[in-house]
């Protein structure tokens, strides 16, 4: 065992920690830089607002943007109320016994199931068994099932962050349990729930596997009309243009990637802004 002087060991550990941080940042920077460098020139108003032409090699990505937008909107409006209600029930109403502990553990573990498993599950249940076909609604349901445990977990965290004494003070005044939740707990948990939701939106916008078999198709010659339409989506479109079509102009591939990236980053950024805002305006 070599004995290092305190000064040297301090320097060494500092360099290792610094190096680890750099290693974590470099890939992100390289990816973003490459995508911007190769894709920025593709981004024009026309690219965002027109249909793909010439076997995707020219034209725009409007149907994919709209497809992703409609699936995500549907998914979040299904998963948010269910997730928040379940979190309220688990957090505020259940007693802490073996059954509820198992339920809570299952929910946490459900968040770790690979997304392609959800995709196949959605194919079996929504597309085939419920005969929804490959459609916006089947994809949205699959995504909402995938996101439900995440929403429940973040919502429970937000509910837990509201001090227990507020509930006690309210109950001690003869106010009922539901009124306490409705008027004291929920308003104060809302910021946490909101930022969690925005991050969930960012996450599911980029998901490919769950919608691969349930909502996305190679090409649709028109924009989506209803939730029972099959649609093009950004992540799947990106996969197609980069692997399935020969002689694809590089510009289009990176342009699509850049649009997806900007979309996800913008949503995440909104979450950060919201968090800063609520932290400033927190009343306790």
């Amino acid at each position: 065992m070599i004995k290092l002087s305190p000064k040297l060991s301090q320097k060494l550990s500092y360099s290792i920690l610094f190096l680890a941080t750099i290693l974590a940042i470099v890939p992100v920077v390289v990816i973003i830089f490459t995508i911007i460098k190769n894709g920025a020139s593709a981004i024009t108003w026309d690219f965002l607002t027109s249909m793909p032409k010439d076997g995707m090699r020219t034209g725009g990505i409007l149907p994919a943007v709209l497809g992703t937008f409609s699936i995500v909107t549907c998914a979040i409006s299904i998963t948010l109320p269910i997730g928040v209600f379940a979190a309220i029930y688990l957090n505020e109403y259940t007693r802490n016994n073996l059954l509820t502990r198992i339920i809570k553990l299952a929910i946490v573990n459900l968040a770790g199931v690979p997304s392609v498993v959800y995709g196949l599950f959605g194919l079996g249940i929504f597309v085939m068994f419920l005969k929804l076909g490959v459609s916006v609604i089947a994809g949205a349901l699959t995504l909402s099932i995938m996101e439900l445990p995440v929403i429940i977990t973040t919502a429970r965290g937000a509910l837990n962050s509201v001090p227990y004494s507020f509930r006690e003070a309210s109950l001690s005044l003869g106010v009922s349990r539901w009124q306490t939740i409705r008027h004291i707990v929920l308003p104060n948990a809302l910021p946490g729930i909101l930022t969690g939701t925005i991050l969930s939106i960012a996450r599911i916008s980029g998901e490919t596997a769950p919608i691969l078999f349930t909502a996305s198709v190679f090409y649709v010659p028109h924009l989506p009309h209803s939730i029972f339409d099959q649609v093009m989506t950004l992540p799947y479109h990106l996969y197609i243009v980069s692997t399935q079509i020969p002689n694809m102009p590089k510009k289009i591939i990176f342009g699509t990637a850049l649009v997806l990236l900007i979309m996800v980053l913008t949503i995440s950024f909104m979450a950060i802004i919201a968090r800063i805002y609520f932290r400033k305006h927190r009343k306790w």
Partner: peptide, 11 residues
């Protein structure tokens, strides 16, 4: 009614 040891104003 009950008054607690620590004052708990609602936010």
């Amino acid at each position: 009614g009950m008054l607690f040891a620590m004052p708990i104003p609602l936010p």
